[in-house]
């Protein structure tokens, strides 16, 4: 009797456990794949919410090229999770208010832009690129916990930016800077001007990291001038400073940087 009851209880528990699990599982693959209406809606959603970073053609601007995500082995379910939940500690935000079917619509549209994996062999020598990086970039940039902090951390730049975007930034063909790295010069009532990058600002104060990596807030009414810079603090590395082959090597190295795991002791 007791054993029977226990078996019954187990059976009920299993049924209960299986029920919600099945309901929570995402369907295999994109349920809206190939649906013409979904693709149209997905295009609009993509253009309104994603294209600013990923580009109108999804080939990457500030965010990565996402036309090759399927070729690189990502699954619909994994991409769905990325769209909904974002990527922690990156510029890719979560979209908590996006309905499930809207995320699938975006992915249905992106599928129509999907490109095969590149067949051209990658250009450049990453080893040499690393040496160039150590010489020219490390004072301001950081990789895997080593280097400067004035510029953005590059530990996962290989997945965060397309090759083209990296090249444009290095040769100085990009206007402006991303938030947190905009140049600013403060002129105090006495003493020399302070130059740095802006971490935050409101009407009355500005918070910066100065060129010696000191983080500090300043009240604007105690300054003679607060001048926003128009050019990035990053110098342009044109052909006079970096040969075409060195540029290839440097970019090749940067493309190998795919994330920093601080729990792995070097």
């Amino acid at each position: 009797m007791t054993a029977t009851r226990a078996t019954l209880t187990l059976a009920i528990l299993c049924a209960i456990t299986t029920g919600p699990l099945t309901a929570q599982d995402q369907p295999a693959g994109n349920p809206l794949q190939g649906d013409a209406n979904a693709i149209r809606a997905g295009m609009g959603l993509f253009r309104a919410r994603c294209a600013d970073c990923h580009g109108i053609d999804a080939r990457g601007v500030r965010g990565p090229d996402i036309t090759q995500v399927w070729a690189s082995g990502r699954t619909d379910e994994g991409l769905f999770k990325t769209v909904k939940e974002g990527v922690p500690n990156t510029e890719m935000p979560a979209n908590p208010r996006m309905f499930d079917h809207e995320a699938w619509q975006v992915l249905a549209y992106l599928r129509t832009l999907a490109a095969p994996a590149p067949t051209d062999p990658p250009r450049g020598n990453a080893e040499n690129g690393k040496q160039i990086y150590q010489k020219m970039c490390v004072a301001c940039h950081r990789v895997d916990g080593v280097g400067g902090r004035l510029g953005p951390d590059l530990s996962r730049i290989g997945v965060a930016r397309s090759r083209e975007a990296i090249v444009l930034r290095i040769v100085g063909d990009v206007e402006g800077s991303r938030p947190g790295y905009q140049p600013v010069t403060l002129t105090p009532e006495t003493g020399p001007p302070i130059t740095g990058v802006k971490k935050n600002e409101d009407l009355f104060s500005v918070q910066i990291m100065d060129s010696r990596e000191r983080i500090q807030g300043y009240e604007k009414d105690k300054m003679k001038a607060v001048q926003n810079g128009t050019r990035s603090l990053m110098p342009a590395f044109g052909s006079n400073r970096l040969s075409a082959s060195d540029l290839d090597d440097l970019v090749r190295y940067l493309q190998t940087l795919r994330g920093f795991d601080p729990s792995v002791v070097p």
Binding site: N37, R40, M43, G44, A48, F99, H101, E102
Partner: peptide
């Protein structure tokens, strides 16, 4: 804003906007 629109389908209780903006 850049406004986008597309034909939406109505499903009770679902978002029904037919567009978005950037």
């Amino acid at each position: 804003m850049t406004y986008y629109a597309w034909k939406p389908e109505y499903k009770a209780g679902d978002r029904f906007t037919g567009g978005a903006g950037q």
